[in-house]
């Protein structure tokens, strides 16, 4: 009986039909990465300037904790946005226009990780500059 049900189940199992969109829809924009990097920078600023009165200052500690969570999330978003453009948008022929692409992306991703690990305004400013440079490379590849 069990086997009968099993064979019936496999017989009527649905087949996946694709309405695919990971194919050349061609909609890529580095603005998302720049925005996320700016969010990281702003969170670093808030974390370093928020005064906490002491262990009983729950409101202050809550605010800092939230800022840290947003910083972590947006640093990850920077990596995700850049990685998708790097792997899906850039084609070998773009490398003639942006010869240092791989190095640039590699350093940018490491910088995003550094911003997760630390609270460093200089690193955050570097991250914003790096995403803006990446956006320039993206524009250059289209020129």
């Amino acid at each position: 009986m069990y086997n009968v049900i099993k064979s019936l189940k496999s017989e009527f199992a649905p087949v996946t039909v694709h309405a695919h969109c990971d194919i050349p829809c061609g909609i890529y924009d580095p603005a998302g990465a720049v925005l996320a990097a700016k969010t990281v920078a702003r969170m670093v600023e808030l974390i370093t300037t928020t005064e906490i009165a002491g262990p009983a200052d729950h409101a202050g500690r809550n605010k800092v904790a939230r800022c840290i969570a947003v910083k972590e999330e947006h640093a990850e978003l920077v990596k995700r946005e850049v990685q998708v453009i790097w792997s899906d948008y850039f084609k070998p022929e773009h490398l003639t226009k942006v010869p240092d692409l791989h190095d640039q992306v590699w350093k940018l991703l490491k910088l995003a990780s550094k911003n997760k690990q630390s609270v460093d305004p200089a690193a955050a400013a570097e991250l914003v500059a790096a995403t803006e440079a990446f956006a320039k490379s993206f524009a250059a590849s289209k020129a």
């Binding site: 649905p14 039909v17 695919h20």
Partner: peptide
Amino acid sequence: WRAVVAERSMAPTLEPGDTL
């Protein structure tokens, strides 16, 4: 036969997870 939709190129008519 039965089918299940993946991805969104037929949206909004068909959404991912629709069974047909």
